[in-house]
């Protein structure tokens, strides 16, 4: 892999920019055979053809000092995620799932081991490079949404497009909101939206970045079942549209829709493979 004109992340960004230049492409709803009520399932149709990015973790450890005690959140994790994969990281509370997500998103640094995204070692990158990585390669969906209360739904989504440096951020934001079924709520502030709507805005914000990796931390944690299913449908479509999607959850039922399930316990990978009960469609989920 060669380094592109954008510095250490040039390779990642080169791939990213190819996707940008190629514009939006249609993915027929019928092709995916998915149908989730109240959600414009045609996200993929307007979604950007961002090529997913390979993620490699080798012997990653993360230890914290809590007073005089050292807590090991991750202990020698080896994980390799292919492009365009929809991976669910499963585990009970305290198993290290969120820590893993934070490390992959360059929000945190490992105590040991190596993390490579698209072949580049982010553990060796400086703060500016990591900022650039977050702007151009990953995007987040948080459990508690973390929308900006002072911005409307449209402006929150536009924020994502803006920071990623996308042109016509306003138009892109409007399109993306329409794709997640909120075309009529664009001028609403977060406190005027329901929890499910807020999470859809958060997903739209992540999608508007056009970044190839989407990291979602308990995205359905604060939502009711029906809304949670809608959100999972949206995320699943992103993987089908070419992104690498990692969802962290403690809900085993959710893992049924994944291509691959990585199970953590006490900071270690205890299982890794396709869903044990077989892969299901989002419409088949119950919890």
């Amino acid at each position: 892999m060669t380094s592109g004109p954008n510095g250490p992340w040039g390779a990642v960004l080169d791939g990213h920019s190819v996707g940008r230049r190629s514009g939006w492409h249609a993915t027929a709803e019928a092709e995916r055979g998915q149908e989730v009520a109240d959600v414009d399932t045609a996200v993929g149709t307007a979604g950007r053809a961002a090529t997913g990015t390979r993620i490699d973790l080798d012997g990653v450890c993360r230890r914290y000092r809590v007073g005089r005690t050292t807590v090991t959140a991750l202990d020698g994790v080896d994980l390799h995620v292919d492009e365009n994969a929809f991976v669910v990281v499963l585990g009970p509370s305290g198993s290290g799932k969120t820590t893993l997500l934070n490390l992959m998103g360059a929000l945190d640094a490992p105590s040991a081991g190596r993390i490579r995204i698209a072949g580049r070692d982010i553990t060796a990158a400086g703060p500016r490079e990591l900022q650039r990585f977050r702007r151009r390669t990953v995007s987040f969906v948080f459990q508690s949404f973390n929308l900006f209360p002072g911005l409307t739904a449209l402006e929150n989504v536009q924020f994502g497009a803006d920071v990623a440096g996308r042109e016509d951020a306003g138009g892109l934001a409007a399109d993306t909101l329409a794709q997640v079924g909120l075309g009529d709520r664009v001028r609403h502030f977060p406190h005027e939206l329901s929890g499910g709507e807020q999470q859809r805005v958060a997903i739209a914000r992540a999608l508007a970045t056009g970044n190839p990796v989407l990291l979602a931390d308990e995205p359905t944690g604060e939502l009711d079942f029906r809304t949670g299913v809608q959100i999972l449908g949206l995320l699943r479509e992103q993987a089908q549209a070419g992104k690498t999607v990692l969802v962290v959850t403690h809900n085993r039922e959710i893992s049924r829709v994944a291509d691959r399930v990585v199970e953590l316990s006490s900071g270690r990978v205890v299982a890794d493979g396709p869903p044990s009960a077989g892969r299901a469609d989002v419409s088949e989920l119950h919890w």
Binding site: R135, S139, F140, V163
Partner: peptide
Amino acid sequence: ENATMFAFGL
């Protein structure tokens, strides 16, 4: 909010 902005690379 600031942490969110940092997470998005600002």
